[in-house]
Structure formats: structure tokens, C-alpha cells
Amino acid sequence: MLHIIAMLSIACGLIFFAGATVGILRFPDFYTRLHAAGKLDTLGVLLAMAGLALYNLHPFSIEALLTSLKILLAVAFTFIASPTATHAIVDAGVRAGLRPWTKQEDDQQ
């Protein structure tokens, strides 16, 4: 039962990762690509790592619990660091004067 939940969680995480990849490849400009990468990667990591933590718990022992807790700590770290990094890159783009993509520009080309 625990393994099924864990695998469902990992599979959901992989779907989010796939979405992020498609977004990076298909979106028209810097900001939208970062939007896809930042949001979906964070959620994908959350789901995949939570799945791994659950999967690790099955033959239950204190060591396994400790490992799962470390995985969850890594998730918490990513949950703070990844959006901050995305924000910093977008901020740098705005400061450097990169203008967001609009539909009109695309029509002109």
C-alpha cells in the first residue's frame, strides 16, 4: 500500500517534470520559460522526493526513518531555494532591460 502511494507520487512528480521540460522548450521567451521551469520543477521535486521518502519507509526501521527525514529536509530546502533562484534570475532579467514577450511582436516577425 505504501509502495503504491509512493509510486503514484513519483509518477505525478515525473508528469510535472515532463510539463516543465515541454514548457522550457516550447514557450516563447525568457520569462515564460523560467515560469515553467521554476514552478513545475519545485512541485515535481516535492512530489518525487516525498514519494522516495515514503518508498524508503517500507521495511520500517529507525535508520529508514532518519533517511526519509533527511530527504524531507532536502525537499524543504529546495522549496525555499528554487523559487528564490527563479526570482533572482527574473529580477536580473528585468534589471537588464529584457522586455517580456507580447503577441504583437510575434506577429510582426
Binding site: F77, I80, A81, T84, H87, A88, D91, R95
Partner: peptide, 18 residues
């Protein structure tokens, strides 16, 4: 010098000890 974003500053300050 350019002012750093508050979000980046706060997050780094929280994360650095860890």
C-alpha cells in the same frame, strides 16, 4: 550598487545557517 531584492536577501539569510 543596485538594491538587492528583498526576497533574495531574506531567503539567503534564512538558508545560510542551514
Amino acid at each position: 550598487w543596485t538594491p538587492r531584492s528583498t526576497i533574495v536577501r531574506a531567503a539567503s539569510r534564512v538558508l545560510a545557517p542551514f
